[in-house]
Amino acid sequence: MSEQGNLLAIEGLAVRYGAIEAVRNASLEVREGEIVTLLGANGAGKSSILNAVMGLVPVAEGRVVFEGQDVAGQPPERIVRRGMTLCPEGRHVFSNLTIAENLKIGAASRRDKSEAAATQADMLALFPILDERRDQLAGTLSGGEQQMLAIARAMMSQPKIVLLDEPSLGLAPQIVDTIFELIVRLRDRGATILLVEQNVDLALEIADRGYVLATGDIVLSGPAADLRGSGDVERAYMGSH
């Protein structure tokens, strides 16, 4: 069993692509109701951690303990059905489906279709722009709107925890602010969030705790408030740990 209060605990995770070791020995915990951010430069292995947790890439070593059970190596569809989901880097909305269809398929794992419809109404209320364009193809949305759709789609499975991979990627600053406000609102509504970001300042502003990853290792961790003030994060980024 995991430590009490941990919704997700990653223990000694290693991810390899052939001979390349993307993640060496990563451990982190997310407690219920928290926003935890995982920071690190490009190529540090952040996405690899999320993809391995979700079963999209194989776990070479270590455990992924979700609600007290090791889910490492399970297929992504089963992990989603357990209540953990990933909003992938680069948004990956289904551009050939309408917005309504994107949301509908987001709820595919749920048995009760009337509850799923309620969640969809809830999401459309939270993202009015998506409601207006419900029957348009997702490919016609702007980048920020696609990000909103990707988040709304992830929420459709009513996850206990959402892994958000670089939600600010490629978006204009005002849009990034909107997205971050939404992430806070989702947490206020009871969601638990593991946020991977390159935008260090914003991520530490909304997070409760943070971890910094450099070349496959966790080099720094602590409450977001502590990380914010010190120069440690910058130093870790530069690789002088």
Binding site: E77, P88, F94, N96
Partner: peptide, 21 residues
């Protein structure tokens, strides 16, 4: 749902699996 999933899968199979399909 399965039909929509098949159209989604034709674009992006891994993300379709992330939907629990």
């Amino acid at each position: 749902i399965l039909g929509i999933a098949m159209r989604a899968a034709s674009l992006d199979f891994p993300v379709t699996r992330l939907m629990g399909i």
